[in-house]
């Protein structure tokens, strides 16, 4: 085996290639970091764009987080909070729904269940533009226009396919014998879920919750069409606004992107394993 050799130019090449790619992947992070730690005057000096800050300062983070009222700039802290208020309930509700659905679709298949499942799955692939016009009108008609609840509802509904899919694949691995045994003991549909599957579900929930949390946190199209009130805007919309300004303070914008990216990034770094599992489950069969 090649790995046992003490020196192998081939392996050196492999490491060099891996390191080269890693550096390329980190270029945007580098740019974000060096820009966000610079004061405005320095970030304006484009000849220094790629150089580290002369004297790192937290002032852009402060401005991005708390806002600069005299410049008409609202702080992103508010939007982070909005995103949490939106993401947490939507994630929990859609995970619970997905768990029940996945349970039924893997262990209690009735006739036509597969067809229903396939029809549900289609909902996660559609371009959301194709439902956007009716969606905005319906949300308005039921009185949820411009509320966080409206956006939560939307994310719950369009989250059902993926959460159902992940749980269905997850529960499919639970041996049918366990369920048979419980049923012989007289357990019904809910008791089997509660006594047998739910205790086994934690890893599944972690995968689904991470997946839903990141995708709802990162979502833009629904947020931009449904929740535009400044005091309710989620972070992605606020960030787009910050970056779309006529006169861009790039240090501020980069600090904003770091703030916006932080929650999902932290989750990813800590629970990356599960994130990958969620990713793989997202590809229908994995």
């Amino acid at each position: 085996m090649s790995a046992r050799r003490s020196f192998d130019p081939m392996r050196l090449g492999i490491y060099l290639l891996l390191i080269l790619f890693a550096m390329l992947f980190l270029v945007p992070v580098y740019v974000m970091l060096v820009s966000s730690f610079k004061p405005f005057a320095e970030v304006q000096d484009l000849s220094r764009m790629w150089l580290p800050p002369k004297a790192p300062t937290l002032e852009s983070f402060q401005a991005a987080w708390f806002g600069v009222p005299e410049k008409g700039l609202r702080g992103l802290s508010l939007n982070i909070f909005n995103s949490l208020k939106l993401t947490i309930p939507a994630t929990i509700i859609s995970s619970l729904l997905g768990s029940m659905n996945g349970y039924i679709l893997s262990k209690w298949k009735f006739r036509g269940a597969d067809l229903i499942f396939a029809l549900m799955l289609f909902g996660m692939f559609i371009p959301y533009q194709s439902i956007l016009i009716p969606l905005t009108r319906v949300i308005a008609t039921i009185g949820l226009g411009g509320t966080i609840w409206g956006l939560i509802l939307v994310h719950v509904v369009y989250g059902i396919p993926i959460t159902t899919l992940i749980f269905r694949n997850y529960y499919a691995e639970v041996p049918t014998e366990m369920i048979e045994a419980a049923r012989i003991d007289g357990a019904g549909i809910f008791k089997v879920y509660w006594k047998v599957l739910f205790p086994l579900s934690m890893p599944g929930f972690v995968v689904v919750i991470i997946w839903q949390f990141t995708s709802i946190w990162n979502e833009f199209l629904f947020a931009v069409t449904i929740l535009q009130r400044p005091e309710l805007q989620p972070i992605t919309v606020a960030l787009r606004n910050l970056a779309g300004s006529q006169i861009k303070e790039w240090n501020l914008v980069m600090a904003g992107t770091l703030i916006a990216a932080m929650p999902t990034l932290i989750i990813y770094i800590i629970l990356g394993r599960y994130f990958i599992r969620g990713l793989l489950a997202g590809s229908v069969k994995g």
Binding site: P28, V31, W217, N218, A243, M254, A261, L265, I267, I269
Partner: peptide, 29 residues
């Protein structure tokens, strides 16, 4: 590979970001 976990994390972390974040950063670049 030694340090496989580190490399994997580096290659995969952009997946956890919003397209909005990606768009803003690469616009600047």
């Amino acid at each position: 590979i030694r340090g496989e976990g580190v490399f994997r994390t580096v290659y995969l972390f952009p997946m956890s970001l919003s397209f909005v974040v990606t768009g803003v950063v690469w616009q600047w670049i």
